[in-house]
Design a protein around this nucleic acid. Structure first.
Length: 506
RNA sequence: GCUGCAUUCGUCUAGUGGUUCAGGACAUCAGAUUCUCAGUCUGAAUAUCGCGGGUUCGAAUCCCGCAUGCAGUACCA
């Protein structure tokens, strides 16, 4: 059997969309399951859309995700180069081969000419299509004499090479996900294969490269399905064996039904890109999963299940597990909406499974942003106490800040509800009780404080919440005596004193 | 407009003619965890399988039509 070789082929026109990441992931899973190769090819045949930094972004994104390539622009390989602009020289000969054997032709119509045709057709409520019916009336090597064609080319007149569809023939695309898709060639237009700027279009380049790189399976987004017949015909025209095709369903926006777009993310509060991206032209910033505090394993797991599932009830799966369970047959046919809540749940689950050393590293980076550099042991204790409450890495700061900085202001709602005249007296007493526990022991302190509260005939919630307010600044956080244990009795007493001083009840 | 693809709980989905008046997960709601918030645990509610016709003893599952949604329709990928 032929070796499985798949490719992920983005064009460097901006940051990598999360849908693209999923496409790449499915390619990777399929390749690895079949002991095949996973290749990164850059499709930069449109020079006008080139965006600096995009290629580096793509590579960095996969590094962060932990999805390695076997061959690609950044690592080379036997089938290089892996960037289409560097393969420029090879495409013309293939385009010419098609012209010579009658599968393609030169066309000299200018964009303006065609635009006019389209406008005219529209005025007549018709649609213009460059196809078997219209090509006889246009300016190309089918209507011009060979001498005229040669003369135009010699005069450096701009031209394109178009594919010549056979008239009225049924084209069959076999798709691994959708089964057989049929379309009549009359409905298709003679696509440009080779542009007047000397570059191939996607259609030509992708067929030539896939063939030369011995790609066995083309797994790509559904948006390519309409041009799949062209690709099938191209393989036929070259006399090459076509790879197998699988067209993936789209990733949809959470509200409405459209395709998930760049705008949706920041509008609805989740990233659409793996890494933060700053547009080099506009300076516009789009958030990334990495910077938003997602763990790459969680992103992969969540993405894998958006459009595929193993058919069992298992939801938490790491990369190796996904590799072993993946199958193209189980990919669903319809689009999947991104679900922020589920993503949150996955990330929380992965934070629970993450090794302390990783969490420590991530936590330290968060703290560095606030110029705080605490002791490692102290951090590890906080991580163990707090990790089950965090969904995203930045919460290690948002929810744990009070372990490093004493509160300066106190939640008004809580003051109003819990801080009554006399509260200060009780807190001072608790402060004294804490001093009496030598050495400090959280169970013992807990018992003594509870005993005291019972003696006061006061509601425990009242006292404990004002106490909490003094240490945390709000009515949230883990067990009070765990906090005291970490903060230390001296710091606790300082905070109590400060709260009493600051909070004055009328 | 034309062409193609799709259509099961709010969301992701299981299900491939019969122990399914449809199972799981997220979200939601309730209870528990005797300071808070979060988390966790337990439980509950939620889909007549887009609609209409067939085929069959029997259909979410097969066929046809319709509706809706999405994609494509560039010298972009």
């Amino acid at each position: 059997m032929k070796k499985v070789r798949v490719r992920f082929a983005p064009s460097p026109t901006g940051p990598l969309h999360i849908g693209g990441v999923r496409t790449a992931l499915y390619n990777y899973l399929f390749a690895k399951q079949n002991y095949g190769d996973f290749i990164l090819r850059i499709e930069d045949t449109d020079q006008t859309r080139f965006v600096p930094g995009a290629e580096e972004y793509i590579i960095e994104a996969f590094e962060w995700l932990g999805i390695p390539f076997d061959e690609g622009v950044h690592i080379g390989g036997k089938y290089g180069p892996y960037k289409q602009s560097e393969r420029k020289v090879i495409y013309l000969q293939y385009a010419l081969e098609l012209v010579n054997n009658g599968w393609a032709y030169y066309a000299f119509d200018t964009p303006a000419d065609l635009e006019q045709r389209r406008a005219q057709a529209e005025a007549e409520k018709k649609t213009f299509q460059y196809d078997a019916r219209s090509r006889g009336g246009l300016c190309n090597s089918l209507t011009l004499t060979p001498a005229e064609v040669e003369q135009r080319i010699h005069a450096d007149e701009p031209y394109v090479i178009r594919f010549k569809y056979p008239e009225n023939s049924e084209i069959l695309v076999h798709d691994l996900i959708r089964g057989e898709v049929r379309i009549n060639s009359n409905l298709l237009d003679d696509k440009v294969l080779y542009k007047s700027d000397g570059m191939p279009t996607y259609h030509l380049a992708n067929i030539v490269d896939d063939h030369l790189m011995e790609i066995s399976h083309v797994i790509r987004g559904e948006e390519w399905l309409p041009s799949a017949p062209l690709h099938v015909m191209l393989y036929q025209a070259f006399g090459w064996e076509a790879p197998q095709f699988a067209h993936l369903p789209l990733l949809l926006k959470p509200d409405g039904n459209g395709k998930l777009s760049k705008r949706d993310g920041d509008r609805l509060g989740f990233p659409v890109f793996p890494l933060l991206w700053k547009d080099p032209k506009s300076g516009e910033i789009s958030s990334g999963y990495r910077e938003s505090g997602y763990l790459p394993e969680a992103v992969i797991n969540m993405l894998a299940l958006l459009g595929w599932n193993p058919g069992t009830e298992q939801e938490i799966m790491d990369l190796p597990t996904l590799v072993s369970l993946f199958s193209i047959e189980k990919i669903s046919k319809s689009g999947a909406k991104f679900d922020l809540e589920k993503a949150k749940w996955f990330n929380h689950a992965y934070i629970q499974m993450a090794p302390d050393t990783l969490l420590l590293d991530l936590f330290q980076k968060e703290l560095q942003k606030h110029n705080i550099h605490p002791d490692t042991d102290y951090l590890l204790k906080i991580i163990n106490l707090m990790k089950e409450r965090v969904h995203f890495i930045p919460e290690f700061w948002e929810q744990c800040a009070f372990f490093f900085v004493a509160p300066t202001d106190y939640d008004e709602q809580v003051i109003k509800k819990r801080w009554k005249p006399g509260t200060d007296v009780h807190l001072k007493k608790i402060s004294d009780i804490l001093s009496s526990v030598q050495p400090f022991n959280k169970e013992k302190a807990h018992n003594l404080v509870m005993e005291y509260i019972q003696g006061t005939e006061l509601n425990m919630g009242q006292i404990m919440n004002s106490f909490r307010l003094s240490l945390v600044g709000a009515a949230k956080g883990p067990d009070m005596f765990e906090i005291i244990d970490l903060l230390g009795v001296a710091e606790t007493q300082k905070r109590i004193a400060r709260a009493i001083e600051t909070i004055i009840v009328n």
